[in-house]
Design a protein around this nucleic acid. Structure first.
Length: 202
DNA sequence: CTCTCGATGCGCT
DNA sequence: GCGCATCGAGAGA
């Protein structure tokens, strides 16, 4: 069957271009023989060692080492003592750049995602809460540090073609949750989507 | 809806 | 020790 998987040359492009292009693509996770998937509706670009908000500012020997590796690989890190964030490495090796995937519209495997997201005996979470944040989508898709450095051309975790998105449907804003670097409009989101993590004008 | 705050592990200075 | 590319609960409006 024809694969709609995104290829390495796409990831090797300039990071801002990749961040914008990934809006509307489908993120797929294969686990236990099942497919979990969602349409990417929010991304952020991390622009390399000179970007004051990027982990890669600490250099190639830091935990951000995967950002200096080949494009089309995963950089997954653990933060706030309890959450993971998933990034796609971009540009040629040595760049220290990546795109953070911040939110998805869940499309396949919602029941299993909900099980991954359910913590205690509290009320069942809504579809809307499943993947509308970087930590939430990692929990829903069972993405953790064991998948750091995974090749996104593998059969465990990958991106493929999704929905058609026109340039006018993509909005930009400052990146979320950073102290420095707010002056750059390096967050991209699908304007119509109710699955983004925060509303415009952040 | 908005805001505030605590949880909790660890990389880095 | 400090400070996180976060989340969810609780309070108030």
């Amino acid at each position: 069957m024809a694969s709609r998987k995104l290829t390495r040359p796409l990831y090797a492009q300039p990071t801002l271009k990749v961040a914008r292009q990934l809006i509307g693509k489908r993120l797929v996770r294969r686990i236990g023989g099942r497919r979990l998937a969602g349409i990417i509706v929010e991304t952020e670009a991390y622009m390399g060692p000179t970007d004051v908000a990027s982990h890669s500012r600490h250099g190639e020997q830091s935990r951000a080492a995967p950002m200096f590796g080949k494009p089309g690989y995963a950089y997954i890190y653990f933060t706030y003592g309890m959450h993971h964030c998933f990034n796609v490495v971009t540009e040629p090796p040595g760049s220290g750049t990546a795109v953070l995937i911040r939110a998805l519209e869940p499309t396949e495997g919602l029941a299993l995602m909900r099980r991954h997201r359910q913590t205690g005996n509290e009320r069942e979470i809504t579809d809307h809460e499943l993947t509308n944040g970087p930590g939430k989508l990692c929990q829903a898709l069972a993405l953790d540090r064991t998948l750091n450095r995974t090749d996104l051309l593998s059969n465990v975790l990958w991106l493929e073609e999704g929905i058609k998105v026109h340039p006018g449907q993509v909005g930009t804003s400052a990146r979320v949750g950073i102290r420095e670097g707010r002056e750059h409009p390096w967050r991209f989101y699908l304007k119509d989507s109710r699955f983004i993590s925060r509303h415009p004008n952040y």
